[in-house]
Design a protein around this nucleic acid. Structure first.
Lengths: 169, 169
DNA sequence: CTTGGAAAGTCAACAAGGCTGACATAAAAT
DNA sequence: ATTTTATGTCAGCCTTGTTGACTTTCCAAG
């Protein structure tokens, strides 16, 4: 492999990180992300939705009943941007927006059956690729993959991610 | 399904991949990519460029003298889309577009000094985050990270990526 | 030499999905 | 009663992607 470390073997050599090795990592990230979104993108196109809809659907599925504000900060977009997407999803009957019981200003978001069906279609495709990649790389690689990804996140998102990791499953 | 192979060795029975675990991987990818692009995005904004410019600059740096057509297929966009970006880069004196010697229809792309300077600024920032993530995760994790990323790429891009890996450094 | 086709560039029009700013409403908090 | 918060909405702008049509340049095959 391309590890320029030289002296040591058995993975230790990778601590010696040249700019070139880091550049390879950057490029790998770029290409992999393209692959990562390719399958859902194809499905979304046939439904006349975009990546923005996918992201909203994903996180509503992940955390049913979350408020618009929470979704906003997780996605990192403006409310105007999210609202455009959310409105079409509600109009098309994929998402249910319910007024809060305690605080009636809040809207809590849920997937309808139809929404859950699309979510399944999308994540099935994405999981298939992820599963194939995991299998090709092996269990040790998977653990490393997740560690590096977590370390690359912005602290706020990492905190959210780790929180969801504990509660979620 | 995903081969429940893992009689847990080393504590990691990660071969047993539940849909929930895969979903976590998907989410990690999403959040990590956000972090990955955050620093360059900030720099680009101050130069009035976008991510598209960054990508062009990156690959021209990587493979000086590549043709527009090659760049096109690496980036995976239309020539009209690329041309808009490329034109501003040439106009602003960051990229040099030279008519081919053998085939004068082709344009070979090079970074000027000014272009190389911006490339350095961008990739320094991106490498800093990558380096920090690598250091936090450790050498074994880095190897796994790269393996999974490669496995996630579309075959064409994986071939290109591996080719550049050999020649590049 | 002529011509077909590839490589590149350009113009126009359009869409998705970001953004900002301004403003409206209802409900909670003070 | 007033202010703040959560949400929604209108209008307009930017980047970056798309398609389609057309031109210019130039290699290569007839």
């Amino acid at each position: 492999m391309s590890a320029g470390g030289g002296t040591a073997q058995g993975g230790e050599s990778l601590l010696f990180l040249t700019d070139e090795q880091l550049r390879k990592g950057i490029e790998a990230m770029f290409f992999a992300y393209r692959g990562f979104t390719a399958d859902p993108d194809r499905i979304l196109e046939s439904h006349a939705y975009g990546r923005a809809h996918h992201r909203a659907i994903h996180f509503i599925h992940r955390q049913p009943g979350l408020t618009v504000n929470t979704l906003l900060s997780v996605l990192g977009v403006t409310k105007q941007s999210l609202n455009r997407v959310l409105r079409t999803l509600v109009e098309d009957g994929l998402v249910d927006s319910r007024v809060g019981r305690r605080d009636k200003r809040e809207r809590h978001l849920y997937l309808t059956e139809k929404g859950a069906a699309l979510e399944r279609e999308l994540s099935d495709a994405q999981r298939a690729r992820m599963r194939a990649a995991y299998r090709a790389a092996g269990p040790a690689a998977v653990a490393g993959f997740r560690q590096v990804l977590e370390a690359m996140m912005d602290p706020d998102l990492r905190r959210y991610f780790q929180m969801m990791k504990d509660s979620g499953a």
